[in-house]
Design a protein around this nucleic acid. Structure first.
Length: 224
DNA sequence: TAGGCCATCTGGTCCT
DNA sequence: AGGACCAGATGGCCTA
């Protein structure tokens, strides 16, 4: 697991300069306490200060010392940071969920955020295209059906990560809901995407369609 | 070592 | 007023 980020709001000392430490503000609890606990206590302190301030305001007008204002601002900032961190965690969780339903190559490193979004775009497009062509087939089967396939980000010539240009996946696993778990040939090699035809498309990737129709699969890259 | 990716903080703006 | 959202800044980690 990745090491925790060294700079988090859990460590309140990050917010305190030397100057602030000597300003008479409540000092952060002893560093012997876990940072999270320290932060919670700091937060409680700030909330208490805020409550006192509210009462004071209700009572006899606004009397705020600079130190108090500073504490209140700091408390709000810490809360906002927590919310923002949580929001980003939720966003990342959603991205992870999206990754989990996309086809992946064995031993492939995790897709980056931008790759995940672009790949999802392509993948959905390819699935929609497959449905459309399958529908065409049902209207009247052509001799040969050209099915679309998505372009894996690792294969995309316009990939966000140019560093992946040397990537040469031997096979990939389709989503579990798609078909068998047997390794499938990669339907979109860079060369194939140039001439719009993949040499060895695997029919397993197109469940429910006659094998002889799944042939000469073109490789599209709708997202640029 | 440079560049890419990421997590986090931060202040501004919008919304409820 | 407070929370959500956003974009810029910053610094750490990793890889070529």
């Amino acid at each position: 697991p990745p090491a925790p980020h060294p700079r988090t709001s859990s460590d309140l000392s990050y917010f305190l300069t030397d100057e602030e430490d000597s300003s008479g503000l409540p000092q952060a609890p002893s560093s012997a306490q876990p940072p999270a606990q320290r932060r919670r206590e700091e937060l409680r302190e700030g909330e208490e200060e805020e409550e006192k301030e509210r009462k004071r305001r209700r009572g006899r007008g606004r009397v705020r010392s600079e130190a108090l204002l500073h504490t209140i601002r700091k408390t709000r900032r810490v809360k906002a940071n927590d919310r923002e961190r949580n929001r980003m965690h939720n966003l990342n969780a959603a991205l992870d969920e999206l990754r989990s339903v996309l086809p992946t190559f064995p031993d492939e490193t995790k897709l980056t955020k931008i790759e995940t979004l672009r790949f999802a775009y392509n993948y959905i497009w390819a699935l929609a295209e497959t449905l459309r062509l399958a529908d065409q087939y049902l209207q009247g089967p052509p001799k040969q059906l050209l099915l679309p396939t998505y372009l894996h980000p690792a294969d995309s010539p316009n990939s966000a990560s140019s560093s992946s240009s040397s990537f040469s996946p031997p096979s990939f696993s389709p989503p579990s809901s798609c078909c068998s778990s047997s390794p499938l040939s990669n339907p979109s090699s860079p060369a194939a995407s140039e001439d719009f035809g993949c040499a060895n498309p695997d029919p397993l990737f197109f469940p429910g369609l006659p094998k002889d129709l799944v042939h000469g699969v073109p490789c599209f890259a709708p997202y640029r």
